[in-house]
Design a binder for these strands. Structure first.
Lengths: 125, 125
DNA sequence: CCGTATCCAACCCGATACTG
DNA sequence: CAGTATCGGGTTGGATACGG
């Protein structure tokens, strides 16, 4: 009984997943966005926030994110020149999504530890 | 005027971004989840859904996602053996996040095309 | 049909060194 | 301080071929 074949999905005309992947591509991209969500931040501050990132990668990601419209770059007129990066409104809208993923991840860990449906089953002894 | 230094962020004790990255790591992971969100799907169907993915990578991702509790794997008792993959409830909760990212991405493209705040500025000749 | 094994090219990122 | 240039290792993923 060879089971009937299902059509290729694509039921909704929307399936631009490539964009999803591209938007947050880069190992540290979500972290950069997360730190900027707490307010504008300078290059060296981000470097300190993410100790293991190299300046090369950080500057690359910042340029990418600026080009995508996720953050703005502003040079401050201070004596040692400094640069501030801040999320755009649209960039800020990524935060709920990132937090949702983190939340699911957290609950998955709880489940993995077996600390979750224990209550449901009411092991009761 | 050397501008006052800001403390290292980390204001909220929660900043497990490494998890966020890990959950959706892999170039095709969001796509796999997206296709499974429309219902259970077999190995070869997913292969057809994502034409450019290799069977090696697909099976690797599926095993990872199963291990993380994002999807379940079930062998169907059909004559040519087939395997169905389906999102777990927790895995399904990733969909809103993925859709949110896709949505932001879409609006960013509109902005990039200059089809957005043109109205605001009312270039007005 | 459902994968696994091997090989290999591309990419990504960190370390280091250097410029304005 | 805010980056850029270069190198080199580690990882990812595609192609292909094979096994259950």
């Amino acid at each position: 009984m060879p089971l009937k074949r299902r059509k290729n999905t694509a039921p909704h005309p929307s399936c631009p997943l490539a964009k999803c992947m591209g938007l947050l591509s880069g190992a540290w991209t979500p972290n950069i966005i997360w730190y900027l969500s707490q307010g504008p931040r300078r290059f060296s501050e981000l470097r300190a926030d993410i100790p293991t990132i190299s300046s090369k990668v950080l500057s690359t990601r910042l340029k990418e994110l600026e080009g995508r419209g996720i953050l703005n770059r502003q040079v401050m007129p201070t004596s040692p020149p400094s640069v501030e990066y801040a999320l755009t409104p649209l960039g800020g809208e990524l935060m709920p999504a990132i937090e949702a993923i983190v939340d699911v991840s957290h609950r998955l860990r709880l489940k993995a530890l077996g600390l979750c449906d224990e209550a449901e089953r009411a092991t009761a002894a």
